[in-house]
Simulated scan of single mutants.
Amino acid sequence: MNRKYKFACALTVLTLALTGCASKGPKVEEPKPNPLPKLVNPQTLSSVFSTSVASTSEADPLRLRLDSNNGVVYVINPKGEVEAYQGKQRLWQKNVSKQGLSSGVEAAEGLVVVGNQKGQLFALDQATGEQKWTAQLSGAILAPSLIHAGRVITVANDGTVYAHELDTGKQAWTYSLPNVQFSLRGQAAPVALDARNVLIASANAYIYAIDALSGAPRLQRRMAVTEGRSDIQRLVDIDGEPTVAGQFLVTTSYQGQVTVMDMVSQQVIWSEDASSTQRPEVSGNGVFVAQNDGKITAYEITTGHKLWENDQLLNRKLSNPVMLGQNLVVGDLDGVLHLIDPSTGNIIGRAKTSGDVRTLRVIDNQLFVATRKGAMSIWQNR
């Protein structure tokens, strides 16, 4: 067990963060989740697809996710399988890894890419599920890869960024992020910045822009700071994916800040204290953040002015927020999907799945949901 993984155990006990393993130390009583607020004439969602896969450990912050490409939905099973569905019809099912799978699915350019905790990266043919190539990385793969500019970009949990050629799987380049003595167990997925460059978020609160073709660094910028005295208090990981919205780049960090940078000037334009391990959402002039304590906060994107804050879902271990149509949606530890008016912060509806909601995505105006208990589902507005 490496040092990073060991520290994740201690962090669970001392700070109740979502980390990598359970502790045998004294039991720490967690704050009780707020009860669900009563709603009058609540809106809801319609389920259009659902399936069940194996659950993951409650102590491991894996964020398995579904993906969709060309009308086909790809589902990952932690036991090592990948499935493809068109509508409710299963097109194929493949047992990919006897060691299980630990990253979400990335599907694009004819490939389906998944990874496991042994650092094995698998590329499958979208049409048949047959394995096209595999690669060995230097650390566990806990976040989905990104297919971009003819490359498969993957971040290993030891901080090494890998690029493999899309067609052959040949390693094109690697980039090593700075070594961090302590960090949360988890990793933000790579994000496309533009047609050629990708963004990588790191455990030292920096963002790196890297040329996907050559591996040359294009930008390095610190996005958060901490004034903690102990190693735990100084943790300031960026575990949620950065959000690119026009000229703006938005990040959140654990025990740090929500920060907005203008990519034209490459200058931070504002930063406000907020602790979050989730990807922020941007819609119109609003930046929406689900904080670790359960508060949901909206900021004006150009000024950082706080538009509203909702504290009705305290201690409900919220997922990342996403926009579905005209509503903001966030999931919680009981599998409840909360519909929120993005202009006021008022909760206006809900739907229910099963288990702690780990990831939300919106693809083609449909909500893709993955939970710790293995409930994989797709929803749409009624």
Rank of each mutant, 00 (worst) to 15 (best):
L166A: 05
A163M: 03
V161Y: 01
A188K: 06
A189R: 14
P178E: 03
N179P: 00
N204H: 09
L184I: 13
L177Q: 13
N179T: 09
D167Y: 09
W173C: 04
F182C: 04
A188S: 14
N204I: 06
P190Q: 04
N197R: 13
Q187W: 12
K170M: 07
N179G: 02
D167R: 13
V198Q: 02
Q171F: 01
G186K: 09
L199V: 09
V191G: 03
A172T: 12
V180E: 08
S202M: 04
A195V: 10
A205Q: 10
A172W: 05
G169M: 02
H164D: 07
V198E: 00
L199Q: 08
S176K: 08
T168N: 01
V198S: 07
T160D: 01
E165A: 11
Q181H: 13
Y162H: 13
T174R: 14
S202H: 09
F182W: 14
Q171E: 15
Q181N: 12
A192D: 06
R196K: 15
N179R: 08
I210M: 07
W173Y: 13
L177R: 03
G186A: 05
I207E: 05
G186S: 02
Y175A: 09
L199S: 10
Q171V: 11
D194A: 11
A172R: 14
G169A: 04
P178M: 06
Q181T: 13
F182L: 12
P190I: 08
K170L: 11
W173S: 01
S176Y: 00
I210W: 06
D194P: 10
T160I: 14
